[in-house]
Design a protein around this nucleic acid. Structure first.
Lengths: 212, 212
DNA sequence: ACATTATGTGGTCGCTGTCAACATGTATGC
DNA sequence: GCATACATGTTGACAGCGACCACATAATGT
């Protein structure tokens, strides 16, 4: 049980592991995966360096924990933005809009939170397994699962041609992920917000046409 | 003038800058950008640490120099593989094959040289400016320029629909780059070689359909 | 009450990037 | 031919990091 007494502050922290992840998350947000530094996180939590080793075997493990949290944050942002879309026309148009919003949210997260985005894909950890097909789409679903769900909807609405469904996830995900990466660390850095938006539109159009 | 005497080895190295880049390139190849360590590179070259500071203001500059070299290597590999394609049918089929080979070469480089690939896109440097449109495609052309050229050819052969040309570079480049990244650091790590090949085929198909 | 375990501390090691001071070659002006 | 200036490489130092160790303290179980 957590240390019984309410306000810790003595010897045992009571919730050190989460506190460390939280601090490291802040570091990653500001400076990407390389900014995650054990001693600094410990310092911020107000605990000696080395205390972290009771909860993580090494720095990589902390990084992985933060990375997983980053992926969750990305998924949350995607859910938020997708929930905002107001489908006007028929089912097919609505499904298309939802898919576009999914992709847009992905890129938006990368642009507004570059540190978190880089961290999310920096560790060698197991990532998300996109197996589960027909679940009710839990709130814990990762980015990949969200995308697959959007594609399933589009497929059900008749927006995907025969034979195009099989690798649709790979195509769509590669496109948005690649676009994000190129904007952060590639030659697309040079684009300003308007150009980037137009380019992303072009990319999404291309995907949509490729699927139809 | 280089130090007059032929075999250096005394005090002045004679070509230290390049030697350091070469050593750092080896480190990056084996372990990615984080494996580039000034002192180790100096050690391998047989020079004291700190000697590097006569040629690079800091570690980041060395990293950037290596990154540029990595991009050049990527472009070379693309040229090689594309040169091998044996266009059978008409101009349009040939242009399509060339584009596919370009994309395949890109991903192939990422898979076979993950350290170099990660390094190529790790630094914040200026990267390639894809401006120059109608040059004879010099041997120094970067990956982006090669891709643009392949797309121009496809366009000339009539393989790109009206309106799809404008952001074709972004769509194609994002797809192959994203696929590469996801295979190295994302959930597509889990794919074996055969699955990866099939998935890449699906991605390339999707791009091609999106352009047509 | 006591022993066992979980958790946090202090100290140390080797490694790194970076700076400052110094040494040694090479080139240049007289 | 030589002295002087400059470029290039060396030595030594510093702080910060990840990782290990032995030790201290708190919580838990009997």
């Amino acid at each position: 049980m957590p240390p019984t007494s309410d306000a810790r502050s003595r010897y045992h922290h009571g919730n050190l592991r989460e506190a460390l992840v939280e601090a490291a998350y802040g570091l990653a947000r500001a400076g990407g995966p390389d900014a995650i530094v054990l001693r600094e996180a410990s310092r911020q939590v107000g605990v000696s360096h080395n205390a972290a080793y009771r909860h993580f075997p090494d720095r990589g493990s902390l990084l992985e924990a933060v990375a997983e949290r980053c992926r969750g944050e990305l998924a949350d942002r995607m859910r938020e933005l997708v929930a905002k879309v107001n489908p006007g026309g028929g089912a097919l148009a609505a499904a298309r809009l939802r898919l576009r919003a999914t992709g847009r949210a992905y890129v938006d997260f990368a642009i507004t939170e570059p540190g978190l985005f880089r961290t999310a894909f920096s560790a060698a950890g197991p990532h998300e397994r996109p197996d589960a097909g027909d679940e009710p789409l839990s709130d814990e679903a990762g980015p990949f699962t969200l995308l697959v769900s959007a594609l399933d909807d589009l497929d059900a609405a008749g927006g995907i041609a025969d034979g195009a469904r099989e690798h649709a996830e790979h195509a769509a995900w590669s496109a948005v992920h690649g676009f994000s990466s190129l904007c952060l660390d590639g030659p697309l850095q040079a684009l300003d917000a308007a150009e980037r938006d137009a380019a992303l539109d072009g990319v999404l159009n291309n995907i949509e046409r490729g699927l139809a």
